[in-house]
Amino acid sequence: MLVVLSLGLNLQWGHAGLFNAGVAAFVGVGAYTFGMLATGVVVADPTYGYPGHWGLSGPTDLIVAALVAMLVSGLLGILIAISTIRLRADYLAIATLALAEIIRYGFKNARSITGGDLALSSVPRPFALYAAQGWRSDGVFTLVAAAVLLLVLVMIGYLVRSPWGRAVRAVREDEEAAEALGKNTTVLRLGAFGIGCALMGLYGALQASWLYVILPDTFLPFATFTAYVVVILGGSGNPRGVVAGGYLFYALGWGEQEIKSLVRLPDWLNARLDYLLLIGIGLILIGFILFRPQGLLPERKYVPKVREPA
């Protein structure tokens, strides 16, 4: 799941050179869109959160809801981008970071729609349905997530190898030169930003369908930086690298949990292990930036070849 998110970011940052510091916001928008479409039609109870919405719940409905979540995130991304995309890298980062916080506070305060801090809960967990039939719901979820990931990977792979992908990389390399060579760089950047944001929205929807509740504070800037860690570790500009980075990042967290459960650590260490992990990730990140800035798997050389004889 994290990989889907990071692939979206990779498209923006690795390929198009757009520094989006508001990843969390687009994830959040996706999650809430999905949540709102999928939660039941129950009258809002102001003391408990839990506002009522459209209540789509069949399997096809939920797929539609996820697609709508992508669409909303993507369109929001394009809308934001229209006003901010001309900004140079660092200013775009500040603008998107600010936006992410605005949206998070929006989630917190629009209580009648989002439940605010009380959470939007009872999001249907479609995968729990299968549990009744003797399937493990997390197993089904894993399969679905893997299928989505595969689909996204194929799509991204096609995109970045396409002429469009090449033009987008040209914008990353030197926007002015790309412009002087006849590219409409604004449109190219908007496209990359929009698709990236849509993928973030998809991640949000997946997350919502898994977690049952949606809380505004899930979408802290921390979520954004997690995605960047994955992209940097894996290799910006290389979708496979991002997958590798995602698993590496996940493996670190999983490893920590395993150590906790397998080894009887002294209490003082046990209590601090989570933080040590964060420090460790920080160190690894610094190490990568210093010694292997291209990540685990660097961007691959594109060697265009004529496929069909003239």
Partner: peptide, 25 residues
């Protein structure tokens, strides 16, 4: 020179020019 550094020579050329088929989404 404003070469597109991390792209190959051939790609530098292919990217030049008005939008080609396949450069629009």
């Amino acid at each position: 020179p404003r070469e597109l550094r991390n792209m190959t020579v051939l790609e530098n050329l292919m990217v030049a020019g008005p939008p080609r088929t396949g450069e629009r989404l």
